[in-house]
Design a protein around this nucleic acid. Sequence first.
DNA 1: CCCTGTCCATACGCCTCCGTATGGAGGATT
DNA 2: AATCCTCCATACGGAGGCGTATGGACAGGG
Lengths: 199, 199
Amino acid sequence: MDMAIGKRESLTANDWTAAALDALARGGLGAVAVEPLAKSLGTTKGSFYWHFTDRNALIAAALERWEQRDTDRVIAAVDQTPDVATRLRKLLRLVFTAVVGDPGAGAGSVELALQATATHPLVAPTLARVTERRLAYLTSLFTELGLSQARARDRGLLAYAAFLGHAQLAHSTPQLVPAGRALSSHIDRLIETLTAIED
Amino acid sequence: MDMAIGKRESLTANDWTAAALDALARGGLGAVAVEPLAKSLGTTKGSFYWHFTDRNALIAAALERWEQRDTDRVIAAVDQTPDVATRLRKLLRLVFTAVVGDPGAGAGSVELALQATATHPLVAPTLARVTERRLAYLTSLFTELGLSQARARDRGLLAYAAFLGHAQLAHSTPQLVPAGRALSSHIDRLIETLTAIED
DNA sequence: CCCTGTCCATACGCCTCCGTATGGAGGATT
DNA sequence: AATCCTCCATACGGAGGCGTATGGACAGGG
């Protein structure tokens, strides 16, 4: 979060995009507003309209940037760990853990912000792509684990829904979600239930 | 949805609250705006400021009304069905089903809208109460099913997170959620996983 | 030394929403 | 019939956001 303080030589479009993403995470799409962002960057609208044609252009850039960054993260969490079962457990533990704590610019904040304005013409396609990509990956893991195609998709959906809901709870009512050691063991049992294979 | 058309004798505060709740469900807290609501009700701000002192008063009324209505629903879904296991299954099936379909004023729309502005001073306490109440009930069901206190709470959290996430998915990317018969069997398997008791 | 291009500040008009002030229509009351 | 009370329409001022239109600062090349 390198923003707002210190005199900069000259702002770049990237700076604006980063600030927009930050605002998106902590205030929703409505917070991606030119004049407030300018103030938080210590500049004026004049700068913005030099780098971007439009507010929509900024939103589009922020969404693209998020989609990119997010994909990288998922891929990074996938790379190692050859065994499928432990890979799945690691992935679930990672995402379920990442989402609690910092309720401002936390990991899942952008998702939540976007869900709130899912019908927005720029948001909808981005959200659909990201969701489908994650769902496909989850499904493939369950498939490799021995589930049929249909059941793997079911489990993928359930796991992803649980993830989204968990993020929501951690964000809106953090006092109802375990913390510390309790969180860790809670996630353990959660993973146990989600990955149980009864035949 | 008795609104917007037909000449009414005189509007009541209830009419405004209903319209506000509707707007909240389909456009978030930001959509609970006096002038647009007036237009949709076929009247003007003059009417509103007669019945309410403030926009905040309207928001508070809508939230209270939602909390009330929601509680009634949950209770209604609980009443009959003596057997605990089938009661849990019925409840889950009901809420998971209710959330798909109509992506406008659907069942879970208010929840989603509120999550988006969970930090709002009027929203936060309402949301916390509702969430805790539902969670407590779910936990009690799992307890009656034979789980320990801690595990029951874990399952309650998981089930509720799954519900929230499912609602989110159904709302933002409905094309990724099964429909029709596929939805029914999907929910079956989902319930199976969520209510599995291995000892 | 001037000139050109980059980057930004300031000022403006427009729109939407909030909240207030004020007056008026129409039924109820006496 | 005159008056009062309920409910609403209209008009206003202010705040905040978008986008445009300029002009200026500052660097580098000629």
